[in-house]
Structure formats: structure tokens, C-alpha cells
Design a protein around this nucleic acid. Structure first.
Lengths: 338, 338
DNA sequence: ATGAAAGCGCTAACAC
DNA sequence: GTGTTAGCGCTTTCAT
């Protein structure tokens, strides 16, 4: 690969002058500029970003860390980040933790070694968050945490208000007259815990005695659908049936829906099902799922926006951004049958 | 940020020695090593990957370019790439072209400027492919093209055999006795064209006179579902109805399915629907969709494997890898009613 | 308007 | 086993 020296030689000028036309930051005689541009063209020269970054201390790279690219809503966040950041001249380095706290930490180190200008950490593990791993980090490099429990984290973050969104979903079910509501959740995660907490509050505050919490196990891909279907079928064959099911994500809602269809139970006439995350799945089922929208696109956009501000204007103060969720009403809920 | 000089000073040795314990490539006295390790720890020193790469001419970065992260199957490929490559000590830089040929070219240049060790170009635009934009590229830097039409491209690639997969799907419908098959496709793309070609061949070879090609328009997200639903509803209300629908992707298959459900047409009893791509959508509908699996995970894995081979062992010869597709039979197809 | 030279943080000859 | 030094490709003073 040709370097700046080759170009300078080819054009018969010094490397300084080449650098000047490259960066267009000092006056260069039109004639010289043209000579240099021709040389660049001829040699197919591309400036070495790394050498440049070494001096300028700016890599124009943003590190983005996700727990899993195939989780249905992360691509939306990542796309929004990429779009915004790219317009401002940055690229993204994407890493996948697979939910492993150790790998998460390792990847952060790696990104720092690569001199990224900032890091967006999407849904980091509770473990690392609780160990306060990221407080120091956020002081040494611009960092935004997305959608983690902010608990104990002293840096900037953007998240959705899971509590409010959950509450809104339950309120909707209550309005429809449901008194026997089951909750489907997955294995340990802050997100499930908080929903369970609200669920229990709702039961208490409304003096509802029916309480059923079902665990659909681990994972975020299609196997959760099958597993949910099995446990929900068991639930529905017991004597006291819920009139509504609150699923902690859309995958579980689909599983619940399939269980109903297979048992000949009509949704929403006999049972209402409400999902969470409002992924594309909610638009695919029949009936379409009523689901809580997390506004992932906006979250990605805001995270990127805040990060670039942090990078370009320095940390003025910690930013906490809590975005609204929105209940998207489709066809999977109906008034409770008395 | 501390640098190697700071560490050397702190430990009272030369930077060379520090470099040696960092890379663990030359013998260093145990005592000295410990001193240095302590200094590294104390200063929270992380080697600057860029400076290192400048010398070694190796960035350990792989550039991955996709037309859209939110397309349902790209995350699967990307994840497979990330997983493999990461084990071998590489990271990935991910860019999104949004299907724009200009942006695609720009992003390639950018990655080269960043000194990536190799590039995986997923589903590049026909436009750039036809302009032979990537023949030179593949000579100057290890490059794998995934899933493009290899036509005219002289470098290495891995793709699935769309023709065979499509043929297999049609054969399956024929076996089931279908003679009136409609095709739903989207706007111009190699992938749609090839399916249409096979479709027409099938009709000709089997002397089938029913021919219906429906265009569901652009895009790869949920709006395609709605649009397909509308056009399919129109189709089904005409006098001569197909007994089977071949959808060029799962989104379109879902749209077709929804159209049937809304019109009270039973799937698969009255109409069979076959999808393509075998995304998670195929497992979500009811009935579940019979769909052609493209083996995206394997594709990602093989692309990464071939690329690293290219990088580490040099280009021995052009590799063409054509992977098998697999028809996944679920519940959306049944024998034709006569 | 242009060039010479220093130096970003690191590795790799080469000495000792 | 350790240090000195050159230099990767570039930007940036400082001269001219």
C-alpha cells in the first residue's frame, strides 16, 4: 500500500504539503494541489487512519457492546447508533458478550486498547454493574450505559422506564376487568425481577388473590417460544385458569398464544395475552400482539447523541435519560369474561 | 492514559523490556517481570493497539459490511463471524450500507483506511458487483463476498445455492399436487430474479398454465408484511385462485398467511404457503411456515474461516464455497385440493 | 506557500 | 537478560 511518502515523491513535493491537501487545513497552491491529487489517484493512496490517530489522539471509533446481536431488539438500537454516529464521521466496533460478564470486561479492555473515542454498553450484566466495574471506566473514557439498571452506576446512561411500562400494561389489563392474571418470566435478570415486583404490587393493591408466576427458563431465541408453550399448556389445563397472561417478552407471548391456539382457547375472547418489547413478532402473530414498546430506535439515537456530546464537549455532568415506553394496543387483549 | 514509557520509568527498566513482558516473546528475568507487572497494574496501563499495528502491519480487525442490521438473518451471520473471529483474536468493525451502493463503496474505503486485515462483504449491491468494483479490492486485501451473485466477481466468496433451494421448494409443491402456484417477489434484486427464473422454468417444464407474479414492493421489514397482505387479498378475491403461494421471503409468507386468515381461507387445507430464509418468523406463525433454510450460521462461520485463512496463509487460490440450503417442512403446506 | 524535523506509542534489529 | 536506536505513517510546530 502506498503511503504519504510515495505520494510526495510522485508529486515532487514534501509530505507536509501532501498532508495539507489531505486535511485541507492550510492554503496550498492550486497547481500543487492538482499535482498531488493526481498522484493520490494514480497510487490509489488511502491515508492510514491509525497513524493519524496516533497523533491526533482520536480514532473516530465508537465501541458498542451488546449481549447478543441476534436478540430481536438489539439490531434496532445498534442501527440507530450506527446511523447517527456515521453521519458525524465515526465508525463502530461491535462486540458480542453472549451475556458473559468476563467476556464483557475483556471486550471493554480491548476497545480501550483500540483507542475508541467512546463506549456504548448495551444491557451489561448485573454482575459487573453490581461490582461497580463501570464507575471508573466512565471516568476514564466517555461511556454510556444503555438499559441497565442504573443502580450503583455513577456515569451517564439512557434507559427506558420499565416500571412505568409494566405498570401501564397491568393497568390496561385491570381496566379490561381481568382479575386472574398470570406472569411469565425468564431466569434471573433485572428486567424480569422488576416486572415481577410490579406484578406482586398490582395483586396486593387490587386485592387479587390469583397469583401465578411461571418461569420459561433461559435464553432469548426461539427455543423460549417452545418452552413457554409447554409450561403455559400445563397452566391452562389446571382447574383455575387465568383470564390474562402477562408475558415478559414477545417470545414468551408467542409461546403463550400458541399454547392457547393448540388447546382451542380463543385469544383474546377467552384469554388475553400481553407482550413486551414490541418486536416484529408482535406484528406477525394472529391476532397481533398488544405489547409494550421500548422505543429502541430512539434509545439508540439518544445514546449516540449523548455519547458524542460527551466526547466532543467533555463531561459536563452526568446525564440520566429515561425514555418513555408506549403500550401498543393490537388484537390480543379483550375484556375479561366474568 | 499511561504509556509504555511511564511503565518503564515506574519499573525502572527500558521500554524494550516492558514490550517483552507485554508480548511474552523474549526471556525476561522473573524478578524484572514482576516489577513490570506491578507497574502495569499500578498505572492501569493498556497497550495502544494502534501504535502496535502501525509497526506489525496487523490490526486484528475484520471489517464486516451488511446492507442492514435489522434484516432478520444478517445478525445470525454476523454473530457467527464475530464468534469465530473473536476466538482467533480479531475484532469486527461493523458497517451498514442501508443498501446504498455509494455508501457501500465509501465504507469499504474507510475500512481499508483503518487497516482492517480483511473484509467480509455481505450481500453487496448488484450495481457495484456488476461494475466489477470488488475485483481489484480482493487483490489488494483479503476479501470474502457472502451471498452475492458471484457473477463477474473474481475473488473468493461463500454463498448458498439459491437456485437449488428454490427448485427444491417448487418440487415439494409439485409433489403435493399443486398446479396453480403464485409467486410473491419484491423489487429488483438478484435474489428475486433468480427465484422468478426458476418459477417460470417450473411452469414451462410442467406445462402449467397458471402464472401469477406479484410484486410486494421494496423493503425488508414489517411493512412488507402489510403490503403483501393487501396484494394477496386482491389476488385471492379474483376468480381463479392459486392453490399454493411461493413467497420469496418469510415476511411475504406471513403477509400471505394473514391475508388467508382474514379471508377465512384455511392454511394449509385450502392454500399452501411456502416461505424462504427460515427466519424466526417461520416458527412464530400458526401454522408454522414451511421455509427454505439458508444456513446463515454456517455461512457466517465459513466466511470467517475462509477469510482468516486468506489472511494468515495468503491467497493460495480463489475459493468458491456454495453451501446447501435445506427445506424445513412445517405446517403451512398440504396436498392440493383437486 | 512550502519544507525539515520532531514525535505520537510501540516493536524489532542490533548491541552489549 | 537488558538497553539503544531506528522507524511504522502520519500531523504539527517552526523555519524559510
Amino acid at each position: 500500500m502506498a503511503n504519504i511518502n510515495d505520494v510526495a515523491k510522485e508529486a515532487g513535493v514534501s509530505i507536509t504539503t501532501v498532508s495539507r491537501v489531505l486535511n485541507n487545513n492550510y492554503p496550498v497552491k492550486e497547481e500543487t494541489r492538482i499535482k498531488i491529487e493526481k498522484a493520490i489517484e494514480k497510487l490509489n493512496y488511502k491515508p492510514n487512519t491509525m497513524a493519524r490517530s496516533l497523533i491526533t489522539k482520536k480514532s473516530s471509533m465508537i465501541g458498542v457492546i451488546v449481549p447478543g446481536i441476534t436478540n430481536l431488539f438489539f439490531p434496532t438500537i445498534v442501527e440507530a447508533i450506527e446511523e447517527f454516529v456515521n453521519k458525524k464521521g465515526y465508525s463502530i466496533a461491535l462486540s458480542n458478550t453472549e451475556g458473559d460478564p468476563k467476556k464483557e470486561l475483556k471486550l471493554v479492555e480491548e476497545l480501550i486498547g483500540r483507542q475508541v473515542d467512546g463506549i456504548i454498553l448495551i444491557d451489561p450484566t448485573m454482575e459487573n454493574l453490581h461490582k461497580r466495574c463501570y464507575n471508573e471506566l466512565s471516568k476514564s473514557i466517555p461511556t454510556i450505559i444503555v438499559n441497565g439498571s442504573p443502580e450503583g452506576y455513577k456515569g451517564s446512561f439512557v434507559c427506558y422506564d420499565e416500571e412505568v411500562g409494566t405498570q401501564e400494561a397491568f393497568d390496561y389489563l385491570l381496566e379490561l376487568g381481568h382479575e386472574k392474571i398470570a406472569l411469565i418470566r425468564g431466569h434471573k435478570s433485572f428486567s424480569y425481577d422488576i416486572k415481577e415486583k410490579i406484578y406482586k404490587n398490582v395483586l396486593k393493591n387490587n386485592k387479587l388473590s390469583y397469583e401465578k408466576i411461571i418461569d420459561a427458563g433461559k435464553g432469548n431465541s426461539s427455543e423460549v417460544i417452545e418452552r413457554t408453550q409447554i409450561v403455559v399448556e400445563q397452566l391452562l389445563q389446571k382447574e383455575e385458569r387465568p383470564t390474562a397472561i402477562f408475558a415478559c417478552n414477545d417470545l414468551m407471548a408467542v409461546g403463550a398464544l400458541n399454547a392457547c391456539i393448540d388447546l382451542g382457547i380463543k385469544v383474546p375472547k377467552d384469554i388475553s395475552i400481553i407482550g413486551f418489547d414490541n418486536t416484529i413478532l408482535a406484528e406477525v402473530t394472529h391476532p397481533k400482539l398488544t405489547s409494550v414498546d421500548l422505543n429502541m430506535k430512539e434509545i439508540g439515537y439518544r445514546a449516540a447523541l449523548e455519547l458524542l456530546e460527551l466526547i466532543e464537549e467533555g463531561e459536563k455532568s452526568r446525564k440520566k435519560l429515561i425514555l418513555d415506553t408506549k403500550l401498543v394496543i393490537r388484537g390480543s387483549c379483550a375484556p375479561a369474561i366474568k
